[in-house]
């Protein structure tokens, strides 16, 4: 882990923002302070030796019962150098995070999905709407306190009728 170039550079450049780092099965990840997330991501994309131009995946994890509750996960890849890296950001339940649409356009739909599934808000997202579930769906399905079969007190027939009328 110590010889990971990306990690070394990040620690050098952003000593205040890099909070923690770890490695599992040769995959290195770093925890970044929310305040510096956009700076760090921009740096990772633009640095000539790192060049993480491909946002493979953006998602979140709900650590219900722990503080802070949510974790944003950015899986990065560099097409030129063929290496991967993972950036994580911890978020409290009612906290929002700056949108990374300006960094990678693919973040648009990924962030909409995280908003839909976890209820995490992205500041500065151009079009933050639900993407999978209906607009008036109650709750956020991938939260750990969301029941597998959905909330019991929802009248789906009523919801359907409303949708048919509004169209």
């Amino acid at each position: 882990m110590e010889d990971n170039l990306t990690l070394k550079k990040l620690k050098e450049k952003f000593p205040d923002y890099v909070l923690d780092a770890g490695e599992f099965r040769d995959q290195v990840y770093v925890y970044v302070d929310k305040r510096g997330v956009l700076e760090v991501l921009n740096f990772l994309r633009d640095d000539a030796q790192l060049n993480y131009d491909f946002l493979t995946d953006l998602t979140a994890v709900d650590n219900l019962g722990k503080e802070p509750r949510f974790e944003m996960v950015y899986n990065l890849y560099s097409i030129k150098y063929r290496h991967r890296f993972r950036v994580k950001v911890s978020l409290a339940e009612d906290e929002s995070i700056p949108s990374s649409v300006e960094v990678w356009k693919t973040a648009d739909w990924h962030e909409r999905e995280v908003f839909d599934m976890f209820g995490i808000n992205f500041e500065g997202h151009p079009d933050l709407r639900r993407i999978m579930m209906p607009d008036d769906y109650p709750g956020h399905p991938l939260r750990k306190d969301f029941p597998l079969q959905g909330p019991e007190d929802v009248d789906y027939e009523e919801m359907m009728k409303k949708h048919l009328k509004s169209d």
Partner: peptide, 15 residues
């Protein structure tokens, strides 16, 4: 622990 593994599926990267 946590891992990410991607493969080249017919349509692109499936991870």
């Amino acid at each position: 622990g946590e891992v990410y593994q991607g493969i080249e599926a017919p349509n692109g990267e499936l991870g």
